[in-house]
Design a protein around this nucleic acid. Structure first.
Lengths: 259, 259
DNA sequence: CTGTGTGAAATTTTTCACAGCG
DNA sequence: CGCTGTGAAAAATTTCACACAG
């Protein structure tokens, strides 16, 4: 019922890039396979489920047994109408006049997101960012297992990070197969990202989380999500500019008009 | 003309959270000031401008003088109709029958995003992630200047990171005022994030980029953007689950030739 | 009575498709 | 002629508002 259009290749959510700069001179890259995705949940809702999940886990940790849509919405930073609509896509898991059972809803959302399975992750690029990711304990609290860390720098290879020994990038294919990696994380410099991505894809990985500031080019069927620090900053800058005509905090009388 | 509704507090873009879990038991937090934002450019477009900008900079670096909407769209991973529509909000900067002048368009987008001004950034939480951010040279290539690094850990305070001496968190207010910080970046553990945010806001910062896995509660007029690693992973997991019923790679290793 | 679940309305975003400029 | 710029149509998302279940 929803989603029948094609959006470039197979991408999901906001900020998902796919093509590479070099592809520019070549093929129009108009993929013939939109992959309809007939199943129900809207993308916008999927993107919020993890937020609800985290709020619920906090609630659960603090011993709250049930929560109203209003309360959960506040905790998640959305309005209650949106929350109820989102949850309604999963099913009717609330109790009218009462609210939602926190634990039950945690279970349902986790199941929907596929977190009852264990996803194996490989991180390529063990610089500061890669290390931060590797050490990020709460990688979904559960559901994700970091199985391999890889880097091209021989000074890093062999070093122990987050309890794992960093492998050489040359063993990527082997690592993917041995560990059954399903999600590849790219935390390399921009120049290396596409190459790493290609190798991930070649090895059979169909989900990639990209931290490098490049648009990755992937074949249909592969999902790429991108996290881009400078893009987020630029968006903030745009709004900041709109708020007070220039730099500084409000209250700063910076005659920075024009330029 | 566009945007008249209110969406929680003053937030921008996807994944922007605001309230905190504790607020849950208290006030409905319904701000009376929606801040209309009558000015033109759609939020969805703003979020893509940085992507176009980066693609253009790559083009420029490779010596390409002009580019068609088709070419730029491919480089940016969107379709050309969307690209043209987006650019049309900025003005008519293209030449029919030809395309866009790369340098000129770079200038126009930069100006629109407010990158011709310099934004001053302070990062709180100098763990692996904070260090990664501090060292991330291409913080927008330009437009952003990291002016202060702060941490609560006395073992880190005083250490030099990315050419800056890490200050103690107690000097946050002072640092914000002295350096005229306009964007605060939070890379602390979840538990500390709201407190740091409150101090940023109190000190006059109205734009916050949050890497901590919590929903921040801010007053109206303050923009919060959130980058959340585990949320991105969970979204990928959802789609991965949809693709092949379980873990592992799909059997159809129909890789792309690439290079 | 309270608060969920939901059709329907409103808004935003994307896509189409084509007039017309260079 | 090719490619931009853009009204108009289509699709997706958000919000409203209320019937009704517990």
């Amino acid at each position: 019922m929803r989603r029948a259009r094609e959006e470039q290749r197979t991408c999901v959510g906001p900020h998902l890039d796919t093509s590479s700069i070099e592809a520019l001179e070549h093929t129009p890259v108009t993929p013939p396979t939109p992959r309809p995705r007939e199943r129900g949940i809207p993308e916008a809702t999927v993107a919020r489920l993890p937020v609800y999940l985290r709020a619920l886990q906090a609630l659960n940790a603090s011993g709250t047994p049930t929560i109203s849509s209003e309360g959960l919405a506040t905790a998640a930073g959305v309005n209650s109408a949106k929350l109820r609509k989102d949850l309604s896509y999963l099913g009717s898991y609330g109790t009218r006049g009462v609210g939602y059972d926190v634990e039950y809803l945690i279970y349902q959302i986790s199941r929907e997101l596929g977190l009852t399975k264990d996803w194996t992750v490989a991180i390529v690029g063990i610089g500061n960012l890669g290390r931060a990711l590797a050490n990020y304990g709460g990688f979904g609290t559960r559901g994700f297992r970091i199985a391999a860390l890889l880097d091209a720098d021989t000074a890093v290879v062999g070093r122990e990070v987050a309890g794992l020994s960093v492998r050489h990038i040359d063993t990527l294919e082997e690592a993917v197969k041995m560990e059954k990696v399903s999600i590849g994380v790219i935390a390399t410099p921009a120049a290396a990202a596409q190459g790493v991505c290609d190798r991930f894809v070649e090895a059979g990985v169909t989900s990639v989380l990209n931290f490098a500031p490049v648009v990755l080019n992937v074949p249909p069927g592969v999902d790429v999500r991108k996290v881009d620090l400078s893009i987020e900053l630029q968006i903030l800058a745009f709004h900041e500019q709109r708020k007070n005509g220039g730099h500084g905090r409000p209250g700063w009388i910076e005659a920075a008009e024009g330029l």
